[in-house]
Amino acid sequence: MKRTLLLAALLAGTASAQQNVTIGLGYLPNVQFAPFYAAQKEGYFRREGLNVTFKHGYVSELMPLLLQGKIDFVVGDAEDAILAHAQGAPVKYVMAMYQRVPVTVFSLGAKGITKPADLRGKTVGIPGAFGSSYFAFQALLDANNLTERDVKLAQIGFTQLDAVRSGRVDAAVGFVNNEPLQLRANGQKVNTLSVNAAYPMVGVGLITTEKNLQGFLGRKVTRAAQQGVALTVRDPARAFRDSASFIGSGGGTLDVLKASTPLMTSAFTRANAVGFSDPATWTKAIAFLQKSKQVPAGVKATDFYTNSLLSKTVK
């Protein structure tokens, strides 16, 4: 009896020692967040002594909550961390989920949009005048001697797939691992325009406050999330199964996740480990934003990101 009570007390003590952490994952539950769902389901967070809760919403809503201390981490575009930090917010990008932006401009083959010049006079759908989709599209136009006045921009929220499929817009800005994939799965011919040459930006990743870099919390959360990325790359089918209870039936498919995993790796991660940010990519990204006067001329890339919380032993 005494042994049973002692065991119960020890278990209760272990449970109470778990540190509560809230991670903002953006918009709606979706397979794109599989590394975090997998880290939860596989017990990676729990092994670090963390009791993790996910909060979904627009990053524009989640970043203020991060700064107010109401949530602890946010998964967002690199630009979210860069622009917030440039305006004085004490935030840093601490783990890369995607090594490059997955943004693309997609259209049905019948529209004949095979090069950026074909966008002239066309109606192009964008989620809104914010985030990596909007910035990347602006860069694509600029690199091809076009301006927003040369196209008809339509702010359509996150309805790009239906808007293109129904003909409401001629093209839309979406993700290469999402909407074009779904259209092709339905037998439709799709044209895509890559933005990577015009917009050399770091992909979506984990952002936190500089305060969380000082203690153990940042390292624990990042280590567990990094393991989630590694599992997703290594075994997307397992990560998809882990995600099922979080995303339901409308949160994406295994094919979408499989198309996402190449975005999580690069030559740099193969030499180090998943989750690491390539300093060369960051240097190019900050130089681009400086040229477009979105960040001050005197800043350097390491002001905005760190690899210090990551482990090279995670594969």
Rank of each mutant, 00 (worst) to 15 (best):
L67G: 09
Q68S: 09
Q68W: 04
Q68P: 00
Q68N: 08
G69E: 15
G69I: 14
G69R: 14
G69H: 15
K70A: 14
K70I: 07
I71L: 15
F73H: 05
V74F: 09
G76K: 01
G76E: 04
G76V: 00
G76Y: 03
D77L: 01
D77E: 09
A78N: 01
E79N: 13
E79A: 14
D80N: 12
D80T: 07
D80K: 03
D80C: 03
A81W: 08
A81D: 08
I82G: 04
I82P: 05
I82M: 13
I82E: 05
L83A: 12
L83C: 10
L83Q: 10
A84P: 02
H85Q: 15
A86W: 13
A86D: 13
Q87D: 15
A89H: 11
P90D: 11
P90E: 06
V91D: 10
V91W: 10
V91P: 09
V91H: 11
V91E: 11
K92S: 13
K92Q: 13
Y93A: 14
Y93N: 12
V94L: 09
V94R: 03
V94C: 08
M95A: 15
M95G: 04
M95Y: 06
A96G: 15
M97V: 11
M97N: 04
Y98H: 13
Y98M: 12
Y98W: 15
Q99V: 06
R100I: 01
R100N: 07
V101R: 02
P102D: 08
V103Q: 09
T104K: 10
T104H: 07
F106Q: 08
F106T: 02
S107M: 07
L108V: 06
L108H: 05
L108N: 06
G109W: 05
G109R: 09
G109Q: 14
A110E: 15
A110G: 05
I113E: 03
T114K: 13
K115V: 03
K115W: 02
K115F: 01
P116F: 09
P116E: 06
P116K: 04
A117P: 00
A117M: 05
D118Q: 06
D118M: 04
L119D: 01
L119W: 04
R120D: 05
G121R: 04
G121H: 08
G121E: 06
K122P: 04
K122L: 11
K122C: 06
K122Y: 06
K122D: 06
T123C: 00
T123G: 00
T123K: 10
V124E: 04
V124F: 04
V124L: 07
V124W: 02
G125R: 05
G125P: 04
I126C: 01
I126M: 10
G128D: 11
F130I: 12
F130Y: 15
F130L: 13
G131W: 03
S132I: 12
S132C: 08
S133Y: 08
Y134N: 07
F135T: 03
F135S: 07
A136R: 00
A136D: 00
A136M: 01
A136H: 00
A136L: 02
A139S: 12
A139W: 01
A139C: 03
A139Q: 02
